[in-house]
């Protein structure tokens, strides 16, 4: 897999996502403390760390879904709020009730709501975008399927298709690989590669350490504070992982490759 950014349509050095000193607290307990980083354009970035490290919280704070008590986020050099249309978001699959009365196509159409404005309804153009997004994740045949009848992996792919329908430049994904089948995992990787080819930037909350090197270019290591950030080959090493996961990391030597499990 090519780890170098393939093409960068934008030649400005402006970072797609620049976080400065983000701090989030629940009930006066800091969950995310003073996190600062800068993403490079056209990179696939994994955000990893142990359970309770604040990975999802950091993502939500950057999106404004949970209040940060301190910190600034700029997107392509502009304040976050003015750049919302350039951001695609994939929430955790468990965050919604899948028995909601709607079908896959309708959920994907929700991705177009942002650019539709306040009172316009999705029309033919939006439907085309939605169907195209569904085919990109291999779900075109399921467009009219009630969402509760989809498998977990298929539901995840519908969420990804919705983010694609947002036609964003920067994607934030909250655990898209959690509990999905092999077919979905493959569909997601293909999609991430395609996004990268188009010069898009993707930040993914990830929990599976064994796939980080294969899937991602850069990595952010988080345990309440940012432990390290940088290209996988430079940052993703035993020492940094030990510092991130502490004693909760076990190493298994298995046919030459290292399998790491963080609990």
């Amino acid at each position: 897999m090519n780890k170098k950014p393939v093409n960068m349509p934008d030649h400005t050095a402006v970072s797609p996502l620049h976080a400065q000193g983000i701090t989030v607290a629940y009930h006066k307990q800091p969950v995310v403390q003073n996190v600062s980083f800068k993403l490079d354009e056209g990179r696939l970035v994994a955000l990893i760390g142990p359970n309770g490290a604040g990975k999802s919280t950091l993502l939500k704070a950057m999106l404004g879904l949970v209040p940060a008590i301190r910190g600034e986020v700029s997107v392509y050099g502009q304040p976050y709020a003015s750049q919302r249309k350039r951001i695609g978001y994939v929430p955790q699959r468990e965050s919604v009730d899948w028995d909601f009365p709607t079908n896959a196509l309708d959920v994907v159409l929700m991705g177009t709501y942002g650019r539709l404005g306040w009172f316009r309804r999705p029309g033919r153009q939006e439907r085309e975008i939605a169907i195209e997004s569904l085919s990109k994740v291999g779900m075109a045949d399921y467009a009219n399927r009630q969402i509760s009848q989809l498998s977990g992996g298929q539901q995840q792919r519908v969420f990804l298709a919705r983010a694609l329908a947002q036609q964003a430049d920067l994607y934030l994904m909250d655990e898209p690989f959690a509990g999905v089948d092999a077919a979905t995992e493959k569909a997601i990787i293909t999609l991430l590669e395609q996004l990268k080819q188009q010069g898009k930037t993707v930040l993914v909350v990830h929990h599976d350490l064994s796939t980080v090197e294969a899937y991602f270019d850069d990595v952010l290591l988080l345990n309440r504070e940012l432990i390290a950030a940088g290209p996988v080959e430079m940052v993703f090493n035993t020492e940094m992982l030990q510092r991130t996961y502490g004693g909760r990391l076990t190493f298994l030597q298995d046919s030459g490759s290292m399998i790491m499990t963080g609990k």
Partner: peptide, 11 residues
Amino acid sequence: SFDRGFAKGLG
């Protein structure tokens, strides 16, 4: 009603 977080993300 379906996905409050996503709606919030749209601003």
